[in-house]
Design a binder for these strands. Structure first.
Lengths: 243, 243
DNA sequence: CGACGCATTGATTGGATTCAACTAAGGTGG
DNA sequence: CCACCTTAGTTGAATCCAATCAATGCGTCG
């Protein structure tokens, strides 16, 4: 099992002891597999477990009345799917598996107990939640004020950086199980226009993409094309302790 | 001082005892006034206090290289400005006062202590943070997949609902200290187009707006025009306790 | 009164959507 | 093994929503 991945994100922001890790590990009641395109959690549902990504990619999404879909977040190993269910009862959006993935289920009540006793773990989890929020804010900026070229550059830059943080990047090559349609839903564009935009980026030799793979050719140029600043991800270990 | 407002939001999601309220109140080291258009917290800053809105409106925003601004959240009384600073050291965006407003400052360390001792308060605060996140997600949907007409309808609907939750709506009339330029930055549009869109909404008799006031004429029609579903705000008191 | 901020309106441009067709790759079943 | 179908990607032409450029009205304030 790819358990180490579960801690990569938490450990990026806090020092965990062996006991912390064990305590966290014990929360996991089971790990189940979800096929691509199937919902991990449905909109409106009230699941009894909190879900944590172990393998594969998923997306936080909302279907609109007019049939269009907006992806609000891409989830990779180490990300919580629905941490907010510890305090909120009902999903206000769905989570769909973008690739075949495995998901750990965590008992809500057990998690609740840990949140009330283990301050270090709690802080790590809260921290990771706040990083997720920062990512969501970046998403607002992306769809709100950037053009197609910048949007695609930014999202690919971000996913590269996030995958790198959990050790899933090898020599600037990332497994990217996203179709152009999914990219469109994540950037607020249409598949057709994503296609044209990717063609431009390809022409500019910023990356190679296809067959579920992304190879960054010029990370600096890509970052500046997308206005990407990793600051909101690298929130590690500021002010080690007392001030 | 308009202290009661501070609890309106927290109490909407959790039952607080008199002691909880007192404990929270004690955290407030002082309340300062900020003039409209001045930053409450600057991008990149590492403030020593957490800020809480007491009066007036503010906005979470980011300036882009090209000079455009994206507002990621509107903040009203009861909202935290920078709760994430309890765990994250540095602002990745700025907070600006949209109207003259007063802001409570909370000592970070004292808050930290409370977070580790008072589970009920902590949960209430976490809850409020998760509501903020849900609001941000709605913002992504708004700028990502809705047209101008829907965007404006949605944001005004949301602000009406949020203001109502903290008791600041009287007979469907809300104080709305937003210029069309601010609305533009919050919806990812241009001031000119906001103007035309408002003209349309006015013509459709959905609301009257101007002079810092918003009067909703047909809340049902406005909500359906904006695809607004209050579900993500009304997260109150589900599953009272055990299951 | 002039300067400024904000709202409004017109004319024009442009980025992205829409509609539509077509290619390529993979899987399935007769 | 090849017809058949599905899914993903690509390309072209026409259209449209919103941006841009530009000018004006209007109230407030120094």
């Amino acid at each position: 099992m790819a358990e180490p991945l579960l801690f990569k994100k938490l450990e990026a922001v806090a020092d965990l002891t062996a006991e912390d890790r064990a305590e966290f590990q014990n929360l996991i009641s089971d790990v189940r597999t979800v096929e691509a395109k199937r919902d991990i959690v449905r909109d409106g549902e009230r699941p009894e477990h909190v879900h944590l990504m172990v393998e594969g990619w998923a997306a936080r999404y909302k279907m609109l009345e007019n049939g269009s879909r907006q992806i609000m977040a891409l989830l990779i190993p180490g990300d919580f799917c629905d941490l907010h269910l510890t305090v909120i009862g009902r999903m206000d959006h769905g989570i769909v598996a973008l690739s075949k993935c495995s998901v750990a289920r965590i008992d809500s009540e057990a998690l609740d107990r840990v949140l009330e006793t283990n301050a270090r773990l709690t802080k790590a989890i809260l921290w990771s939640a706040l990083v997720d929020e920062a990512i969501t804010r970046q998403c607002v900026i992306n769809v709100g004020r950037r053009d197609a070229y910048q949007r695609v550059a930014h999202i690919l830059c971000e996913m590269h950086a996030r995958m790198k943080m959990v050790g899933l990047v090898d020599d600037n090559v990332v497994a990217l199980p996203l179709t152009q349609e999914m990219l469109a839903d994540a950037t607020g564009l249409t598949p057709v226009h994503i296609n044209r935009t990717i063609a431009l980026l390809r022409k500019d030799r910023l990356f190679e993409i296809g067959n579920g793979m992304l190879k960054i050719l010029d990370i600096g140029a890509l970052a500046s094309a997308g206005g990407f600043d990793a600051g909101y991800l690298q929130l590690q270990r500021r002010a080690p302790r007392g001030k």
